[in-house]
Design a protein around this nucleic acid. Structure first.
Lengths: 113, 113
DNA sequence: CGTCTATATAGATAGTTGTCAATATACAAA
DNA sequence: TTTGTATATTGACAACTATCTATATAGACG
């Protein structure tokens, strides 16, 4: 699995997206996050493992706490891929628009005859 | 599974992302797409089913052909989610920046005394 | 030391996924 | 109607996922 695969797969779970949204507001410990969902601590820990493996979060050590932090560069890599697709698509439209403009011009010139 | 779940999950596979990139350039039939990957036709058909269920593509009927078209609105919904997260994160930084600016000001004023 | 708190790991289970070969369906064309 | 071409469906298999309970580890604090 490459990085984009892992990032998209990680974001395909609503619990993990919830974690991401929460971490966008700032660091949080595992137990903070457990408090947000009706899921057990091991389940949350496993979701965090997935997010970390995908490069979407990182973790520090503070005594027994393991504060989690959002890694926005990886999030940006995902957005970048989507925007590239959008650009190809729009390029397509640009080409189509140019084609239609050309057609219109041709029709106008034909009317002159 | 909700729409975002399905869209992210659909995009988590490299073959499906390849299909999306190809369709960004314009419509393509199933056999066009089969030609792009070293996978069997049923496998490509199953990927297309996933993309269609996720609302990322749509299909027409033209004789025996089933041209596939990218649905950019759904792609945009995914981008929107990512941008919202980014905005929360940046809002965070803005608040932090404001805090640091305030701190600097306080220190400056303390030096005057 | 023993105990409490925070987190990780292990093992089980039910459900989902990606892939294939084989077969079925839908339409076209001879 | 027979044949050919494009696509879908079926059934199988191995791999992976989300979740749980139970248990282990790591550090803080008495």
């Amino acid at each position: 699995m490459n990085q984009l695969d892992q990032a998209f797969a990680a974001l395909a779970d609503p619990t993990r997206r919830g974690i991401v949204v929460h971490l966008a507001r700032g660091e949080a410990s595992v137990s903070d996050l457990v408090g947000l969902f009706h899921l057990t601590q091991p389940t949350i820990s496993s979701h965090l493992k997935v997010l970390e493996a995908a490069g979407l979060i990182s973790r520090r050590r503070v005594a027994q706490l393991r504060p989690c932090k959002l890694e926005t560069e990886r999030l940006k890599a995902v957005t970048d891929w989507l925007e590239q697709v959008q650009e190809i698509w729009e390029g397509n439209y640009k080409r189509l628009d140019a084609l239609l403009a050309e057609l219109k011009q041709t029709q106008k010139e034909e009317r002159k005859k």
